[in-house]
Design a protein around this nucleic acid. Sequence first.
DNA 1: TGAATGATTTACT
DNA 2: GTAAATCATTCAA
Length: 207
Amino acid sequence: MSTPAASLDEALPRSFYARPVLQVARACIGQLLVTDRDGQLTAGRIVEAEAYRGPEDRAAHSYGGRRTARTEAMYGPAGHAYLFLIYGLHWQFNLVTGAPGEPHAVLIRAIEPHTGVDRMRARRGVERAATLGNGPGKLCQALAIDGSAYGWDLTRGRGIWLSAGVRGRVARSTRIGIDYAGDWAERRWRFFDATSAHVSRRAPARG
DNA sequence: TGAATGATTTACT
DNA sequence: GTAAATCATTCAA
């Protein structure tokens, strides 16, 4: 068992992100997602992530090569943030991966509270640790991530970044909430920590 | 210019 | 189990 980074301050390098998107999604499990917002340091251990691989992946916003103001960040260099608002209510945090021009991203779907837990409780308005970050919208609220971080460079170790954590046992399943994607919905592109009580929900039925 | 909708969360029956 | 909340983005006209 390797020792996690001594300090949350040390951001994972660009080489972590500049790899095939499925590889990055798997590698995210166990890493720490850190934010420094409003002078408050908060961090969570990533326990669930999904890969989206446009332009061929029908579930991806970049499906068919769609390139608009919203999806632009996905076409840029790896290691930046892709943010979008869903249902007019909830922000979703993604990592841009791969080479420039490849519109690939990893959606972070759940975290275990790690640092600044009381601050997360205040931001979320709930007490139970299990409900602080067990969903893509919830973790953004807990870590104070919103659209102002669109395109943010995650390798600088300021504002929002990833730092090394402890991997745990990684399992995989189909992705959540993309039933419209036909055959692509059957791909097991969701990775999660099999031992964590903080994943968002049970794997959808396959078939 | 207008209408439809979504990589969700929450409250309610 | 079902439904409402709520709005930027997208696409059609």
